[in-house]
């Protein structure tokens, strides 16, 4: 589903991605972990074209992301992304936030869109907030709306960029539960997160990034019980101690 080959990226003089090769199969859940500055968020943003790459190729569902603009817009309809800061549209109601994508980008009929949106709201657990504005919701509710907004496009892939990092501890669980459900429904997901518990339980594979390269890649069991690299060991120890 996602094929990343020989990707290099520079921010000015800074070499942030130094030759990434990665494949994510359909229905697979890949969790990216690493210290800040390791390039994991950048890599994620390269997948849906929010960051440009200087070398290499990124293809999602066999569409080359960085080839042409029209391809990119088409591809983005198949890729959903959830940001750390939610990025909901503050001047639109929750309903409008969720429906604007399918309505204006995919051109689906209004009635259908509304019904689907109501179902999604029901599923994420806040059916009564359809006409509320984002600033009237809690952080956890906003993030769930953000997930619903992405899901409304019926994407083939869902990307998550530290979805719980900006949330209060009580609200992290509700968002992770939703993500867990999605994984069980065999959605292809790439998740950048610090939540090790989630990685251990939900991921099919875990990748550890350090200084722009993928240092280790393996199943959660392999990863957490038997890390190969010293850096990985150090990182896991630090994170699990916190």
């Amino acid at each position: 589903m996602i094929a990343i080959q020989g990707v290099h990226k520079w921010f000015g003089r800074l070499h942030v991605l130094k030759g990434i090769d990665l494949e994510v199969g359909q229905g697979e859940v890949l969790v990216l972990i690493g210290a800040s500055g390791s390039g994991k968020s950048t890599l994620l943003r390269c997948i849906n074209g929010l960051e440009r790459i200087q070398q290499g190729k990124v293809a999602v569902d066999r569409i080359d992301i960085h080839a042409s603009k029209s391809d990119l817009n088409r591809a983005r309809q198949e890729i959903g992304i959830v940001f750390q800061q939610f990025n909901l549209f503050p001047h639109m109601t929750v309903m409008k936030n969720i429906t604007i994508g399918p309505l204006k980008v995919k051109g689906v009929a209004a009635q259908q869109v509304r019904e689907a949106a109501l179902k999604l709201l029901d599923r994420i657990g806040i059916p009564d907030k359809a006409d509320a504005y984002p600033d009237q919701l809690s952080g956890g509710q906003q993030q769930r709306v953000a997930i619903a907004r992405a899901l409304a496009m019926q994407p083939k892939v869902m990307l998550f960029d530290e979805p719980t990092s900006a949330l209060d501890p009580e609200m992290i669980k509700e968002v992770l539960d939703l993500m867990r459900e999605l994984a069980q429904e065999r959605m292809t997901m790439v998740v950048v997160t610090h939540e090790m518990g989630f990685a251990r339980e939900v991921a099919d594979r875990v990748a550890f990034m350090d200084a722009g390269v993928i240092l280790e890649l393996g199943s959660p069991a392999q990863f957490f019980e038997n890390p190969q690299h010293e850096r990985t060991r150090q990182f896991i120890q630090k994170v699990l101690q916190a």
């Binding site: 849906n48 983005r76 994508g101 980008v105």
Partner: peptide
Amino acid sequence: RTQIEAAQSLGMNYLQVMGYVVLPQ
């Protein structure tokens, strides 16, 4: 800028991003 990113991530083209997200705000 994050608003524009969110809109772009939904697959909106330049005009749609401007008209639905940027200009109203």
